[in-house]
Design a protein around this nucleic acid. Structure first.
Length: 103
DNA sequence: CCACTGACTACTT
DNA sequence: CAAGTAGCCAGTG
């Protein structure tokens, strides 16, 4: 059984427009738990495939990918780039431009 | 129910 | 700016 928070978070993530991203913290906040960032990552980990979640659109508060180089980092980066998102020199995404639901 | 874990965040050095 | 620390909260055993 999932909490309402989890369900809202899932719904929000599923609604991220292409070419946009959301940080764990923002997604959690929109779902009603400003401190539930860690849960977001858990959901993606266990249900990304089943729920058709665009897990690659979720990044950390610094605008960077949290995965490790040999653990999906490059895959996520490639997926984001294919949606039109540009990375800076340090593989950083400009949240001002790409953060969803933040305007 | 208690303990542990984690794709986090904010604060402090 | 990088590294360390504490707080957070739901899922899992």
């Amino acid at each position: 059984m999932l909490t309402p928070f989890t369900q809202r978070a899932l719904n929000i993530i599923r609604n991220i427009p292409e070419g946009k991203v959301l940080t764990y913290g923002r997604a959690a906040a929109l779902a009603g738990k400003p401190r539930g960032a860690r849960q977001i990552s858990r959901f993606l980990h266990s249900m990304s495939e089943k729920h058709d979640l665009p897990w690659h659109r979720i990044i950390n508060s610094k605008g960077k990918i949290s995965l490790k180089q040999s653990h999906g980092y490059e895959l996520q980066k490639a997926l984001l780039e294919s949606e039109g998102i540009k990375f800076s020199k340090s593989d950083t995404i400009d949240l001002k431009l790409y953060l969803a639901f933040d305007l």
